[in-house]
């Protein structure tokens, strides 16, 4: 039921590219460092495969979750490795692992998530409002499966768009996911001129 054509996935990839480009620029000016972006990866996967695709489910990650409400509902999920979380804190001049560190990551999540959603919203002319992020440090699998259960649970397939950002040569990689709710994907696609 939830399968997409290559053309539709390409259009979504381009849309994610514009969103993450905007987010990268915002992060770059916040940190005063150059930020490199990978070409976004867009895939429609069975839910269990979507969890596996993101890495070792037992590895610990710092995750920021921003729920999106509006013409399209969904979740933006930011995943930082522990090293990346520590590096970002250091770049911002706050001690990693401290309360200030957590709040700095929350702010980074807020800036990345809002600029991402804003760029996509204005591209497809949809009103989408991100809520402030929640940041947790937990198992990758527990984080991703809980987001999928909340957003895409009653479907067989989740559409996941992810991009990797790299901050200068700091070996600081984070991934960036947009997980729209079921009807949201169709809304996006019809706005992109490729209705299902």
């Amino acid at each position: 039921m939830s399968t997409y054509t290559d053309l539709q996935l390409d259009a979504l990839r381009e849309m994610a590219n514009i969103g993450s480009g905007n987010a990268g620029t915002a992060l770059s000016s916040m940190l005063g460092k150059s930020v490199d972006l990978s070409v976004p990866h867009v895939s429609a996967l069975p839910l269990a495969d979507a969890v596996d695709a993101l890495g070792d489910p037992e590895s610990m990650v710092t995750a920021g979750v921003l729920p999106i409400f509006g013409d399209m509902d969904g979740v933006v999920l930011l995943l930082f490795t522990q090293e990346a979380a520590d590096t970002l804190c250091t770049l911002l001049g706050v001690p990693p692992g401290s309360e200030y560190g957590a709040s700095a990551l929350c702010e980074i999540g807020n800036i990345l998530g809002s600029s991402y959603v804003q760029a996509i919203g204005s591209m497809v002319d949809l009103h989408m409002e991100p809520r402030p992020p929640e940041v947790v440090v937990d198992q990758l699998g527990a984080v991703v499966s809980s987001v999928l259960a909340h957003v895409a649970g009653d479907q067989d397939v989740a559409l996941v768009m992810d991009t990797n950002l790299e901050v200068e040569q700091e070996a600081c990689a984070l991934s960036f996911l947009l997980v729209p709710e079921g009807d949201g994907v169709n809304e996006l696609l019809s706005r992109l001129g490729l209705p299902t």
């Binding site: 527990a142 499966s145 999928l148």
Partner: peptide
């Protein structure tokens, strides 16, 4: 996620990683 498994093999371990 969404799967189930059974076993009677003495060396078997059934595991679910990352239950949120």
């Amino acid at each position: 996620m969404g799967e189930l498994a059974v076993s009677t093999g003495s060396g078997d371990v059934l595991t679910s990683i990352g239950l949120g």
